[in-house]
Design a binder for these strands. Structure first.
Lengths: 228, 228
DNA sequence: TGTACATCAGTGAACGCGCGTTCACTGATGTAC
DNA sequence: TGTACATCAGTGAACGCGCGTTCACTGATGTAC
């Protein structure tokens, strides 16, 4: 095995082990020494691969965003009838939900509490943007198709229009303010739902998470005017 | 000063200091020794007041839930015209938002990632239920007043009805499934919005958090049929 | 094809630090008679 | 009002443990001629 191959393999071994540890102790208590022990090397050797604990954490964050992003993009792309926006939206929502359920600690790492003392570098931005980006692509299609929203939306004033100014540059289409607002609400609903569910706030209230989630997703699709 | 007064005062001093530390290092890294040092006593003395680190954490969690709960209840009660449900709903939402902005770390403690290795005891349940409870009281009023929902809701099937079975016991009124679904969605929207905002996911996207939040709240009130 | 040198992975010891929890203790505050 | 005893707060030392990071080093892998 070449040096380069070895390097790649060891880097991955460290990252995988780190990820396992993350699930057990959380990001704040993630320990380089414990990871090194588990991989079977001495703690100082890890520094040949990651210059510091924070760099390792960044790698884990990027990995999580990318894994989720890939799952979501694949779910969208997997829908044959590209014009069936309700189906695409549902596929995306369920992909986020499924991934979060399968990887609760990775989800908590990127969508839960920020890690104290850690500032995510700009490297993470592109990966973090994949899910919102996928949603916006569907939103654009609904705008192009001139679909009417399923839920009426209050008139959007100039201030609210300005408030949403940071999102417009990410859009390829001139989108109505009312539609954009509804998509923002769908986005917060989606992640709010998943966070409240995963972090235990629905416990004993909602008795069947999957059924309820599926219902909410179809409702959101209706509100966005995607069904029909 | 009596022994009992002293005890209360020291307990509070420890808890306040713990809370300050929480804001700096997060729940996972909260250190009894550091807190003791800051209060001006030896670390073992803390054990006269809290039997373990986890008990202290529980106290902080209950405190946070109660503070938020009290703020939310006060906001609701503060609305004179009890029949103005839109105003009550908005007051409640803004109370959550304001409190979260003022106490981001306490918010993260209760609505962010679960603390690894910590299991919240049942003691926290009553305090945690205050915000959802306040929302449900408003929901009940809207049911009693037979307000029509502002956003149409897809027919709720038997399975979804069953899935929401855990919430019905907390209701004093027989509530329509469509309304209950909308209130669940409002709840997830509210906390999803706040979490995404506070945890940095709206950064550079939404340019004016307060304006956007206010707009969303009025929209939610519309959807719930509270305005009018 | 072989040799000389450079690069790199991994070692092991060390630095300086912090942690939660236990325990025997001192001295002050409270209580019962 | 005074004395004897019980309760309690806080001390300081100790146990056993873990952490991130640095550094001089050995030995293996790669490269240039």
């Amino acid at each position: 095995m070449s040096r380069a191959e070895n390097r790649l393999e060891t880097t991955q071994a460290i990252q995988e082990t780190a990820r396992r540890h993350l699930a057990e102790v959380g990001p704040a208590a993630l320990s380089l020494r414990a990871i090194a022990r588990d991989v079977g090397m001495v703690s100082s050797a890890v520094y040949r691969y990651f210059p510091s604990r924070d760099h390792l954490l960044t790698a884990l964050i990027v990995e999580a965003y990318d894994e989720l992003g890939a799952a979501v993009e694949a779910a969208d792309t997997g829908v044959r009838r590209r014009g069936d926006l309700a189906k695409r939206f549902a596929a995306v929502c369920h992909a986020v939900h499924d991934w979060a359920r399968a990887h609760p600690h990775e989800y908590a790492l990127i969508y839960g509490s920020p890690v104290p003392g850690y500032a995510a570098p700009d490297t993470t931005i592109a990966s973090a943007a994949r899910v919102p980006g996928t949603l916006l692509r569907i939103a654009e299609e609904s705008e192009r198709a001139e679909r009417a929203l399923g839920a009426p939306t209050r008139a959007v004033g100039a201030r609210e229009r300005t408030a949403l100014g940071g999102i417009r540059p990410a859009l390829d289409v001139e989108m109505g303010d009312d539609r954009l607002v509804r998509w923002m609400m769908a986005w917060t609903s989606l992640f709010g739902h998943i966070s409240l569910e995963l972090f235990g706030h629905m416990y004993r209230g909602v008795l069947d998470y999957d059924t309820h989630f599926a219902h909410v997703v179809t409702q959101l699709a209706d509100d966005l005017g995607l069904s029909g």
